[in-house]
């Protein structure tokens, strides 16, 4: 049991921090522009595919550096020449724009790379178990993912709270007009944040591709979860996104690891269930079976009991 908790905890943190890399960009973009970028996870997918292609010619490590930069520049171009023009027509137009962009990117990815899963693997240098605990291996690549995610989290925190550009970003999020009238180029800041958010999503794709698979549906798989995180954490709250990412990462990994059914839980309370009853399918449902819907269940509960999310603020 202890090793199960230990490994679930580690895997949950790895997944949670990976999700945070995606959610942080999404929530920052929402804070600044007031628009949920439906195409955000598509940039995550692009990161994986671009890194895969680079890795074929120049190796994994070059892809790790170059792919996020390429995706970041693409994101900045989308903001500058797409979203900024759509902005004048309001948030609905922006939502439709990002929704359409997500489809467009998916089609382009399938057009260029095909529909099959790509053989994008972790580098050989990281293909070994970092340690063995109760006979179970913990892959070095997962530790690498953990390190990159923690590094990005610390860097993001330092940039936002300790640097002048971080101050300008915080100011532009709350009062863009006043920030501009102090001489700061707010549209450039917006473009930079959008690009940085996309680059972070791209980096998440680069490191998640070898572990979770590089296929055209990878944006859909993670995209909806990232939206759950942003809503659960509180729209626009970076701290909320961090806590919600870890929460959902842990929730998913523990749900998969703990093989309990509803009847097992009821037995613990001395309630026996009838194997022949009409509800027998419900009693035999196991936690791993319902693991994929748990984040959405959490989303529904949050929306009912705390609509602003864990750390969100109600708009006045």
């Amino acid at each position: 049991m202890f090793e199960l908790i230990f490994f679930s905890l580690l895997n949950g943190i790895v997944t949670g921090l990976l999700l945070f890399m995606l959610a942080s960009g999404l929530t920052l973009i929402f804070s600044m522009m007031g628009v949920l970028n439906f195409a955000h996870a598509s940039f995550y997918m692009l990161g994986a595919y671009v890194a895969y292609t680079i890795s074929l010619y120049l190796g994994f490590w070059v892809g790790l550096i170059v792919a996020p930069l390429v995706v970041g520049v693409l994101g900045a171009v989308v903001e500058r020449y797409g979203l900024r023009h759509v902005h004048r027509w309001g948030h609905v137009a922006e939502l439709i724009f990002t929704f359409g962009l997500a489809f467009l990117i998916e089609e382009i990815v399938q057009f260029i790379w095909g529909k099959d899963t790509k053989a994008y693997h972790e580098p050989e240098i990281l293909q070994f178990p970092l340690f063995t605990f109760f006979g179970q291996n913990f892959p070095a690549y997962k530790a690498f993912m953990l390190l990159i995610s923690i590094g990005i989290f610390i860097a993001l925190l330092l940039v936002l709270t300790r640097s002048r550009i971080g101050l300008i970003i915080q100011a532009a999020i709350t009062r863009p007009n006043m920030t501009a009238m102090l001489g700061h180029n707010v549209p450039l800041v917006f473009m930079g944040v959008f690009g940085m958010g996309c680059a972070l999503a791209g980096l998440a794709g680069v490191i998640a591709g070898p572990a979770l698979g590089t296929f055209p549906g990878m944006a859909v798989v993670l995209g909806s979860i990232v939206f759950v995180i942003v809503v659960v954490g509180g729209l626009g709250s970076l701290g909320g996104a961090f806590i919600a990412s870890l929460l959902i990462g842990l929730l998913q990994t523990f749900a998969i690891a703990l093989d309990y059914s509803v009847s097992d839980i009821l037995v613990a309370f001395n309630i026996t269930t009838d194997a022949e009853s009409a509800f027998r399918d419900l009693w035999t449902l196991s936690l791993p079976q319902i693991a994929p819907i748990l984040p959405y269940l959490l989303l529904v509960l949050i929306l009912i009991f705390r609509p602003t999310g864990l750390f969100g603020k109600r708009e006045s």
């Binding site: 915080q170 709350t174 009062r175 006043m178 501009a180 009238m181 102090l182 001489g183 707010v186």
Partner: peptide
């Protein structure tokens, strides 16, 4: 644009004390 005007040497103090509260 506002930032271009400000960078030319014009300063503005708004009526509503527009501080960055956080």
């Amino acid at each position: 644009k506002e930032h271009e005007i400000a960078n030319r040497g014009l300063g503005y103090v708004p009526e509503n004390r527009d501080v960055f509260a956080g």
